[in-house]
Design a protein around this nucleic acid. Structure first.
Lengths: 350, 350
DNA sequence: TATCCTTACGGAATTCGTAAGCATG
DNA sequence: CATGCTTACGAATTCCGTAAGGATA
């Protein structure tokens, strides 16, 4: 910095560098623990500490409040600056993505974050088709509960997310409807309910049920429906995935309720299956599975192509329109007009 | 780069640095002339050249097309990347602004870009009031035609712009209505038209006119009105500013047409003035002067305060809402869906 | 006492300017 | 041949790791 001052350079405040910003971002994400931050970024802890202090000096304000030698919280300017930092680093990542897009035409990695049901029943077709069209693209599947899907999108671990819940609640994600489904009852083919067209909640409550675990998409709607009818069904077992539920239904533990996608295999099985399914949309309503992206990230063409495979309506033009706006200024604006007021539309209807 | 590769660092592609981006941006703005770019940024030309090449290597694609040793045009990836670069540098500037905002409370510079009429007749009040409230804030006034106002906003030379035309046509500016005005006829008090309430185009065409120069706001509307009526008035003189027009009207060169703001002094003069003015809104319609900001820039509180002085309706909450969205992704999106399609709303009605 | 941030220090790599080389119009 | 980009080179400076210091819970 000595020399620059001497030669009179220092292009309008660019003693700033991207490493400093990366450190600040990571520190914010990791509860202001610089040791952990340094480990995560494969660098030395003193380096992180120094870089942040220099950045603060450069900007003229502290980003973090320090209690002695410990960082305790983010200052108000720090909070506002973090929004800019997120934008900067996101756009830097976009530069790389655009570079990759034009450099190695059809090579790269498609990283998908999704829930079990989607991964098991919905995605196999689209993924296979993508692999056929873009043999050079490596597909990585990250499985988790909807909140994890959201957070993988936010940290740019995943390019595209697919889930039925939680996604629309995030400011910095853009979500679009993908397909609609309902729950179905799963019973052994010989069960009396197998011939029932529109079973009632009372009929179901008379059985022992095999349900999804409460963390799984749609379980809450089932609970609510029973609660509204003042029914308290017996639950034999709660499972994370549909295959487990089906297995226990086969064993006679009770009747199951799963997403309809999970029964499509049985429905299409040549010669029929040992399990029958009965739609339950009239009891539990219908669900919409949504595709989500992080707002502002550049989508390579194979990501767009994949979205279109998920739902033909999700073409490049529509996505471009949906992804247009930016959340960084919204976050800053929230401070100006009193916290809650600024809420950008992040759910696009078709 | 050797060493980083050796120690295994290179935090996920951040060999990138902000100087490279600044160089690229400036080169794009200066017709790909690196010599000029280097001069503008107070650095050496070989440095710029090298930095850009390194950036291209880093990103894996060329940003510029070279004919031998000369840069001729921007490549498609280059065009898309420039949008990201603009965003990055804008947010870096915002970091500085936020720092200034919190560091030196009420000090700083308010840079206003505007046209003559605004600077001369409308701004003196608000500027004086701002100086009274924020004595530490230095006010800089940049005068130009509307297109220059727009370009000063874009290059962040000015924080706020004020003009009656051209601003709304720019993607990356946000404009809001400030006040409405009409043209007025200026005649010596003794002139017969001084007692006319609603002069007609024919009456005006019978006189010799003293008008604004065609580059000045509103002149086109006057020409169009006469053209529609198939009248070709005689024009004695075309001037850039209202004071000149008034002067020549006093000299008896003809009758003048100016913006109503320019006659307010005369209307309020104690003991009357030697000039009379007659509203011409019924002939030339009304005009709306607009305030504009560059989309996405952080506005310091005294900028917001100044906007509110220009029009009380332009309060911080409204501005925060208007400034929320971002154009960078829109520019990129334009490529995806075929150039013209993506047009973000940049004019906000109250 | 264990965790965690800051300061100190030194070697290595990068940065950036000057000077020379060479292609275009 | 004038303009303008690139390559070459070397000295100053920044960078970044290790090691030691000091504060908190």
């Amino acid at each position: 910095m000595q020399r620059r001052a001497a030669t009179g350079l220092r292009l309008a405040g660019y003693a700033l560098n991207l490493h400093q910003l990366r450190f600040v971002q990571e520190a914010a994400r990791r509860n202001l623990n610089l040791t952990e931050t340094a480990r995560a970024l494969h660098t030395s802890q003193p380096g992180v500490s120094k870089a942040i202090r220099e950045l603060e000096q450069e900007l003229g304000v502290d980003l973090f409040v320090r209690h002695g030698k410990r960082l305790t919280r983010i200052t108000e300017p720090g909070r506002q600056m973090l929004a800019s930092v997120e934008t900067i680093l996101r756009e830097v990542a976009n530069l790389q993505r655009i570079g990759d897009e034009y450099a190695g035409r059809d090579t790269g990695t498609l990283s998908i974050a999704t829930t079990h049901t989607q991964a098991r029943y919905f995605l196999p077709g689209p993924v296979a088709e993508l692999r056929r069209r873009y043999p050079q693209v490596q597909v990585v599947l990250h499985q988790g509960v909807p909140e994890q899907v959201a957070s993988m999108l936010k940290s740019e671990v995943a390019d595209i997310g697919l889930a039925t819940e939680a996604l629309a609640a995030h400011e910095d994600l853009v979500t679009l409807p993908c397909y609609e489904w309902q729950h179905v009852l799963v019973v052994p083919r010989t069960h009396t309910l197998a011939r029932e067209n529109r079973p009632t909640l009372e009929q179901l409550a008379a059985e022992t049920l095999v349900l999804y675990h409460p963390t799984v998409t749609g379980r809450t709607r089932i609970d609510q429906a029973f609660a509204r009818a003042r029914l308290a069904p017996r639950v034999a077992l709660e499972a994370i995935d549909s295959d487990v539920i089906k297995t226990y239904v086969r064993l006679g533990l009770g009747v199951g309720i799963v997403a309809e996608q999970a029964m499509r295999e049985e429905a299409e099985a040549a010669g029929g299956s040992d399990l029958a399914s009965v739609p339950l949309g009239h009891l539990f309503g219908s669900n919409v599975t949504r595709v989500a992206f992080k707002r502002g990230v550049y989508l390579r063409h194979f990501v767009l192509a994949f979205a279109e495979l998920l739902a033909p309506r999700l073409n490049a033009t529509l996505l471009a329109r949906a992804l247009r706006s930016d959340a960084a200024s919204a976050v800053r604006a929230a401070g100006v007009d009193g916290a809650g007021g600024a809420r950008a539309d992040n759910d696009y209807q078709l």
